[in-house]
């Protein structure tokens, strides 16, 4: 029998209670589905003295529809998100991304909040205690060398959540609750480019909900990922793409990336594609632009150059498919 490190489990029924319980034991963690956190606890990466269990808090569990936006509780499961007709209708890439997370059993209990706050991952970090000990640990946990870039002092562990890049396409906002009250900020501001400390959450802050404004006109979007095993794995690279066309030319283009750096991000410098017809030459230029921005490091057993190429290839495939849909819809 394997007992985890000693901990106290709390069962609050309101967000405010959860925040107070966490504040009383700051070395603790919030626990939702647990498919990320409990693996790390089992491997000795994390040893929280207490866990504040969020599943009994009604406020976190629902998707709410308003005329101009939808609000998705952080405790909504990935299965619910993937199957939501409302989310499909307005934010197809978000529903697709949720449906691509891990395997079906994980999506039964893994939550939106958990996927957005997923710990960064690295082949030198997500290992058993004895494996990490045998390698003198690493910069991210207990060690002082980064095995990915041994000369540096920066951690390159990759953010590997699937849903964040899709939500970034729609300028989603996150609602946070903490000891000093509630606040809202852009989802993009939740992340920083540091594999050791990639979330900008303050101590004791809890992700409560995601607010996404409905686009004023219907928007076409999609998500695709590459992974080692098609049935279950984290993304080697994940691409979310949003496109609109006017008069046969690209009128709007956004590309969100995950799995290739310590944070999910929207690709920059895509203005040059606005006004171009989405022909093969244009979309291959787009592929190359994304490939150059997907600066994957040696954080998986799959080589970085493959992940850069696959980020570009996924972008090309998605863009071709969406452009074709848009052309057919307008004809």
């Amino acid at each position: 029998m394997e007992l985890l490190s000693e901990l106290k489990l709390h069962h609050p029924i309101s967000v405010e209670d959860a925040v107070s319980l966490h504040a009383a034991a700051p070395t603790g963690r919030y626990l939702a589905g647990g498919s990320d956190l409990l693996v790390n606890v089992r491997r000795g990466i994390e040893q929280p003295g207490s866990l504040v269990y969020l599943d009994n808090i009604a406020e976190l569990q629902s998707i709410t529809d308003a005329p101009d936006q939808i609000t998705i509780g952080a405790g909504v499961t990935l299965r619910e998100l993937a199957n939501s007709a409302l989310v499909h209708e307005h934010f197809a890439a978000v529903a697709q991304a949720a449906g691509e997370v891990a395997g079906p059993s994980h999506r039964e209990y893994g939550t939106l909040g958990g996927n957005l706050c997923l710990d960064t991952r690295c082949v030198f970090y997500n290992q058993s205690e004895w494996w990490r000990a045998a390698n003198n640990y690493c910069l991210k946990s207990r060690g002082d060398i980064c095995h990915v870039a041994p000369g540096g002092k920066k951690c390159f562990a990759a953010f590997s959540g699937d849903v964040a890049p899709a939500l970034l396409l729609f300028d989603a906002e996150v609602e946070l609750a903490g000891p000093s009250g509630r606040r809202r900020m852009a989802l993009a501001e939740l992340y920083r480019n540091d594999g050791m400390d990639h979330l900008t959450l303050e101590t004791g802050e809890l992700l409560v909900a995601v607010h996404v404004a409905k686009p004023s006109v219907p928007v076409t979007s999609a998500y695709a990922k590459s992974r080692v095993r098609g049935s279950i794995d984290f993304p080697l690279a994940g691409v979310a793409l949003r496109m609109a066309m006017r008069d046969g030319r690209i009128a709007e283009l956004r590309v969100g990336l995950t799995g290739v750096s310590p944070l999910p991000f929207l690709a920059g410098k895509l203005d040059k594609f606005i006004g171009r017809a989405p022909d093969q030459a244009c979309l291959e230029d787009l592929r190359d632009a994304i490939r150059s921005q997907a600066k994957a490091m040696k954080t998986t057993v799959t080589p970085p150059h493959y992940r850069r190429r696959v980020a570009g290839a996924l972008t090309l495939k998605l863009a071709q498919s969406l452009a074709q849909d848009l052309v057919e819809a307008s004809s």
């Binding site: 626990l31 409990l38 209990y109």
Partner: peptide, 11 residues
């Protein structure tokens, strides 16, 4: 369906 190895019994 759920993974019993990633679920705390007390939950």
């Amino acid at each position: 369906p759920r993974h019993a190895c990633l679920t705390l019994a007390a939950t």
